[in-house]
């Protein structure tokens, strides 16, 4: 029912992925935003408040704040506090390296916030080879500060060829801090395109990962793996691409895209300095196009109602064609059998 309503277009996004800055103290190899230096035209504090006013007006429930590193922005707490005052739940993706007791104290008083700390390996060697030297130690220190302040967080790991066999250990590591493990999908956008061949999990790893996910329903995945999700995990998250249906992406300069992984000129839907979110959401051609995406070659698949062709971003970057199926789909492309379904 929700999926049907979403395909017709909800009144507003359910959540907004907000890349609040491109500024980042790290240079992760797989960064979807190629973050590092701030965008020259980032929204200022007042403009961010105006964005939040629009979100509150249309009852957008949640912002997923990332970047860049949100805590690298000097006015981040002001923005966060303003969102909290407006009743918007904030989920913050951070590299964890800037989290100190002072920041954690402020976070503890800011309202409803959830944090995801990125960690891409269970040891220094694996993590730092992707995220940079010294980041493993700093992220763990940050996680310890969060735990000390009673702040709820999850450890977010992007699944790669290198860390695929560390997931159980990462889960245990997270549990040591009172946190859950969240596994996100590696997608070939931003700098990740340059290291796709090195880091993307292979077919066998994806197959084994799918089985592992099926066995452990405590692992969080958000909407990352609906194309690989077994029936057992259905309804634990969104089972289809939410781009332009449930969510969209706000980039640091006010540009709106259907998805954070598709921040390319051809997917630009509008800019909040020129048009309202409501106008862009309802009237931009690219949003309409995404709501109407139909991967015809998947129609014959018995899982079509569950995944509807998978992730358009991965399909686009692999095939340059949005109408192609997700190349990492469990059934059609990996050729696996989901025996639970039969």
């Amino acid at each position: 029912m929700l999926i049907d309503a979403a395909r017709e277009g909800l009144s507003a996004p359910v959540n907004l992925t907000w890349e609040i800055t491109l500024k980042c103290n790290l240079q992760c190899r797989h960064c979807l935003s190629s973050a590092g230096r701030p965008h020259p035209e980032e929204l200022d504090t007042r403009e961010c408040y105006q964005v939040i006013d629009q979100l509150a007006e249309h009852k957008v429930f949640q912002i997923n704040v990332g970047g860049g590193e949100p805590f690298a922005r000097d006015d981040f707490f002001s923005i966060l506090e303003y969102a909290g005052q407006k009743g918007i739940v904030a989920c913050i993706s951070t590299n964890g390296t800037m989290l100190d007791p002072q920041i954690c104290r402020r976070l503890a008083n800011v309202g409803r916030v959830y944090l995801q700390v990125s960690l891409d390996g269970v040891d220094e060697q694996t993590n730092d080879s992707i995220r940079g030297k010294g980041t493993y130690k700093l992220a763990l220190e940050g996680m310890a500060h969060l735990a000390d302040h009673g702040l709820e967080f999850s450890v977010n790991t992007v699944l790669t060829r290198q860390n695929y066999d560390q997931l159980e250990q990462l889960k245990a590591l997270a549990a040591g801090y009172g946190a859950n493990l969240r596994v996100s999908r590696f997608r070939p956008s931003g700098r990740a395109r340059d290291c796709w061949q090195d880091l993307a999990p292979d077919k066998d790893q994806l197959e084994n990962f799918s089985v592992w996910l099926q066995q452990d329903t405590q692992i969080l995945t958000g909407d990352s793996f609906f194309s690989l999700t077994s029936e057992k995990r259905r309804r634990m998250g969104l089972d289809l691409c939410g781009a332009a249906k449930m969510t969209c992406c706000l980039s640091p300069n006010g540009d709106i895209y259907p998805c954070a992984f598709l921040q390319e000129d051809q997917f630009w839907a509008g800019n909040l300095r020129e048009r309202s979110l409501y106008d862009i959401w309802h009237n931009s051609n690219i949003m309409r196009t995404f709501r109407g995406l139909d991967v015809k070659s998947c129609h014959s698949c018995f899982r079509f109602d569950s995944c509807r062709g998978g992730c358009p971003a991965v399909a686009y970057f692999m095939h340059k064609d949005l109408s192609q199926p997700d190349p990492e789909c469990m059934m059609q492309c990996l050729g696996l059998q989901d025996q639970e379904v039969h």
Binding site: A5, E8, S11
Partner: peptide
């Protein structure tokens, strides 16, 4: 909760 054309949409954090 918010109203949609076809019904009510609920969110829990």
């Amino acid at each position: 909760v918010r109203a949609e054309e076809r019904g009510l949409l609920f969110y829990t954090a």
